[in-house]
Design a protein around this nucleic acid. Structure first.
Length: 472
DNA sequence: ATGTAC
């Protein structure tokens, strides 16, 4: 183990494991360690770590892996956060980078996507044929067949099998806790992108020679065009966080539990509030998976309009980075919280879904706007961190600080606006999304290097952006 | 992140 890329910190409340290059660790700041110390005050916690993209969040840092033994587990809405089930989805196309060489064609494609996917604030979808209750209860299996194009061969339907879980099961009585207005709003939000760091990108693949055999098994080729989607559970996850958070807080005061941070709420998994949260959280995971699926369905339609009706987008994988789930590690069952961290199982691990048993499943890691994203594969040594790796570049300055620092011209030049290889963006006025400029984030290449050097995962492919669709 | 909310 290279001590330049890993260190164990002995905090007053317990041990913190940090997987980051020396320089990235020193850039994290005192607040990040203070938050770890608060998290470590939650009873029975067995393990806590940061990935190199760790930065301050509400109650818990983005970049946290926090683990309990299942039978003595505590579950925390504050660790999972309000964008429950937020994550990534990647689709493969049969197009090559040269097919999108013409900037006018990239603009046409972005416009076609924009016509199908609402991106503005208070955006509304229009899926009157989808029942929200079915989506929440059954995930992808709750969608009408027309939205699952390969559904007539269920066992081979890649949109079902190439996901972390196409359906999270839970006690449906918990759904009664969410008020009617949220149901109404959430139904209308299905198939909308959301704001902030959420995006749809068209990217070109560069393979890592050392892992060419894995890439080929995944169906990846050099220069191939892929679609990457980053979105979550929209208002539904926020409502789940809010309603169960207040129930969990009541349980805490009844049990006399607390840490130095009152915003950090948690309850025994085996308590009424803990179970209610877990159930509702699973409904939000179902919502998030379906939302990304519907976004991909709309992008597929946009590709068909632009490149012909036979164009197909096959699912590479769909994987979240904000959730808590029971997992088996060794012979024991653990409750693993991942807040801004990505699971990356190694080749041969039994937890891999069937299509990826031998290679390990793809771990999908987004970069910031204008920079590359990565497709990673887990390695056996990742077991020491419960197979958690980073979730992206990680913010380095606040949205407000970014608006102060970065000019529209600087942002435009980082997107090469006006050049032949311009990254085409749906927004004509870049001011609206300037807080998403690359200067707001750490250097994703350094983050990935840290993850590789710490032996948590390997790079299978790097994906360079050709076009991006962002919300506000 | 969020049909933000002091």
């Amino acid at each position: 183990m290279d001590t330049n890329y890993y260190r164990r910190i002995d905090l007053p409340a317990g041990e913190l494991h940090v997987f980051a290059h020396h320089d990235l660790y020193h850039a994290m700041g005192a607040k990040v360690l203070e938050m770890a110390n608060n998290n470590l005050q939650i009873p029975n916690i067995r393990y806590m770590s940061y990935t190199p993209d760790a930065h301050v969040g509400v109650g818990t840092c983005i970049g946290t892996t926090a683990v309990w033994r299942a039978e003595e587990g505590f579950v925390s809405p504050s660790i999972v956060g309000s964008d429950i089930g937020c994550g990534m989805r990647v689709h493969l196309t049969s197009l090559q980078e040269r097919d999108l060489q013409d900037v006018k064609l990239r603009r046409k494609l972005v416009k076609a996507i924009e016509r199908r996917i609402p991106v503005e604030n208070h955006a509304r979808g229009h899926f009157s044929d989808i029942r929200l209750e079915h989506v929440l209860l059954k995930g992808l299996h709750g969608l009408p067949g027309k939205y699952v194009p390969d559904a007539y061969t269920p066992r081979k339907a890649t949109s079902m099998t190439h996901v972390e879980s196409s359906r999270f099961a839970f006690d449906e009585d918990a759904l009664n806790r969410i008020p009617e207005p949220v149901w109404h709003r959430s139904h209308r939000q299905l198939g909308t992108l959301g704001g902030g760091n959420h995006f749809i990108e068209i990217q070109a693949v560069s393979l890592n020679e050392a892992n060419r055999s894995i890439a080929e098994r995944w169906g990846l080729k050099d220069g191939q065009v892929v679609v990457m989607i980053h979105s979550g559970s929209r208002a539904w996850g926020g409502a789940v966080n809010q309603f169960s958070g207040s129930e969990v807080a009541k349980t805490m005061s009844r049990l006399g539990l607390g840490t130095a941070d009152p915003r950090l709420v948690f309850a025994p998994l085996d308590s009424e509030a803990g179970r209610m949260y877990a159930n509702l959280m699973y409904s939000a995971l179902n919502f998030a998976v379906v939302n990304r699926h519907l976004l991909a369905y709309a992008v597929r339609d946009a590709f068909r309009e632009t490149f012909g009706s036979k164009t197909e987008l096959t699912t590479l994988y769909d994987l979240m980075h904000n959730y808590a789930c029971e997992e088996t590690h060794g012979s024991d069952s653990y409750l693993v919280h991942r807040k801004g961290t990505t699971r990356a199982l190694p080749p041969g691990h039994p937890g891999n879904p069937e299509p990826y048993k031998e290679t390990g499943h793809p771990a999908l890691i987004p970069g910031s706007m204008g920079t590359a994203s990565y497709l990673m594969a887990g390695v056996p040594e990742g077991a020491r961190n419960y197979y958690s790796i980073c979730h992206g570049a990680g913010r380095v300055r606040s949205r407000n600080a970014t608006k102060q620092l970065v000019t529209v011209n600087e942002f435009a030049s980082s997107l090469r606006i006006g050049q032949d290889d311009e990254i085409v963006v749906n927004h004509r006025a870049l001011e609206a999304i300037i807080d998403e400029s690359p200067q707001a984030y750490k250097d994703v290449d350094q983050i990935i290097d840290s993850v590789v050097q710490a032996r948590l995962a390997d790079v299978v492919a790097k994906c360079r952006p050709l076009a991006a669709v962002k919300g506000v």
